[in-house]
Write a protein that binds this DNA or RNA. Sequence first.
DNA 1: CGTGTAAGGAATTCTGACACG
DNA 2: CGTGTAAGGAATTCTGACACG
Lengths: 94, 94
Amino acid sequence: MLENNFSYRYKKVITMRSVTEMTNLSERQVRYYEEKKLIFPERTALGTRKYSFFDIELLIDIAEKIKDGLQIDDIRTKLMKHENQVEKMKIIQG
Amino acid sequence: MLENNFSYRYKKVITMRSVTEMTNLSERQVRYYEEKKLIFPERTALGTRKYSFFDIELLIDIAEKIKDGLQIDDIRTKLMKHENQVEKMKIIQG
DNA sequence: CGTGTAAGGAATTCTGACACG
DNA sequence: CGTGTAAGGAATTCTGACACG
């Protein structure tokens, strides 16, 4: 029992199949969002994609924004902005 | 971003492949421990097993106990005792 | 008892492409 | 632009069994 809860959210262990089940997206959609640099799954030695719980959350968020009429490029820009802000907060807060 | 970190530990999403990679056990071993009622993976609609991070921890724990010379039946007994104690603590505390 | 292995079938995942609009 | 689909190959996972000890 050495591991801590915190890492579970970011560990890439989830298969495409589970991703489609949890997000209600198609494989095509999930791969397309990767192609468009919105998500970054890891690959096993044999090339199968692995996603984290965080990726799942992100995909659900992305799907919602698309449904609201946003374009993928804009979503990526927003995500990157948000990421930058998190980084800045970290630096400011020390 | 609705989900909470806590559930990640128990959600069954990890494939056999990842389990063997993370635990260094063989598929045979993992299935045998299930046969012996030490772990309880879920099944997808199509019959493939899914494990949680908690299952991974448990398997690592089990592997250690076996290496120490314990028998599987004894390990199961211990695990169940521990579980009962956790249950009792919950009742006592509230 | 706990684990390895070969066997065959069924389901998964991948890539690149064509299609629609 | 974002998504569906058919195509074929490669790797995964499953079960039941035989083996060793």
